[in-house]
Amino acid sequence: MPRFLPWLLAVGGALGLIAAFTLTVERIELLLDPGYTPSCSINPVLSCGSVMQTPQAAFFGFPNPLLGIGAFAVVVTTGAALLAGARFPRWWWAGLTAGAALGVVFVHYLIVQSLYSIGALCPYCMVVWAVTIPIFWYTLLATLDRFGGGARAVAARVSGYHAVPVVLWFLLVAGLALQRFWTYWSSLL
């Protein structure tokens, strides 16, 4: 397990939890007052208000941030427990990795929807994207290491370059956002 994983889970999970909670509060405010402008609606591109009012914002029939509140609470708790010296069984790591994998798949669905269907970026959502990717990656590596055999060999082989996939992943998402909204971004120069 990477030595910083407990900190990544605790801090990354806390950032995700705060973003999900804030989005939930903003969504409630918008429901109470349709004329409300959320704090994260900064300009035509960075506008969570327009994102919140789409069907994609409630993919399962309720606001997506409610999933984040539950999921990130588990991540924060796991990180805090690891920092306190807890050791979890392999089934816990398998479950955490499966949950993180579902989270990263869902986040990528929302990234594609934000870029190419909705046409706006939600700043709080982008915080969730930014923490979900490394949480998934490093949880996966820790789980592979725990399962031994070929899985451990894969984790060991990747460990020397562990940050490269995350950096490339971030660059790809940033590049897609830059390309998609290039007309807007270039008008600011």
Rank of each mutant, 00 (worst) to 15 (best):
Q53D: 14
Q53M: 15
T54D: 11
T54L: 12
T54V: 12
P55I: 13
P55R: 14
Q56S: 13
A57E: 07
A57I: 04
A58I: 07
A58S: 15
F59R: 09
F60N: 11
F60Y: 14
G61C: 12
P63E: 12
N64D: 15
N64K: 08
L67Q: 10
L67R: 04
L67G: 12
L67Y: 15
G70L: 14
G70T: 09
A71W: 09
A71Q: 07
F72C: 07
A73D: 06
V74F: 11
V74Y: 06
V74M: 13
V75N: 01
V76R: 03
T77Q: 06
G79Y: 05
G79C: 08
A81V: 08
A81L: 15
A81K: 11
L82W: 04
L83D: 08
L83R: 13
A84F: 10
A84G: 13
A86T: 10
R87K: 15
F88Q: 06
P89F: 08
P89S: 12
P89R: 10
R90Q: 14
W91G: 05
W91P: 02
W92S: 10
W92N: 05
L96S: 10
A98G: 11
A100W: 02
L102M: 13
G103Y: 00
G103P: 02
V104T: 08
V104Q: 01
F106C: 01
H108R: 04
Y109L: 12
L110D: 00
I111Q: 03
Q113I: 03
Q113T: 09
S114N: 08
S114L: 02
S117W: 06
S117A: 13
S117R: 13
I118A: 09
A120S: 11
A120K: 04
A120R: 04
C122S: 06
P123K: 05
Y124Q: 05
C125K: 00
M126Y: 02
M126V: 09
V128T: 07
V128W: 00
V128M: 09
W129A: 05
A130N: 02
T132A: 11
T132R: 00
T132E: 03
F136K: 00
F136M: 06
F136N: 01
W137Y: 12
W137N: 03
W137S: 04
W137H: 11
Y138D: 03
T139P: 05
L140E: 03
A142Y: 08
T143M: 13
L144M: 15
R146C: 05
F147G: 05
G148I: 10
G149Q: 07
G150C: 04
R152H: 15
R152G: 10
A153S: 14
A153Q: 14
A153P: 03
V154E: 05
A155C: 12
A156E: 14
R157C: 08
V158D: 05
S159V: 09
S159N: 15
S159I: 09
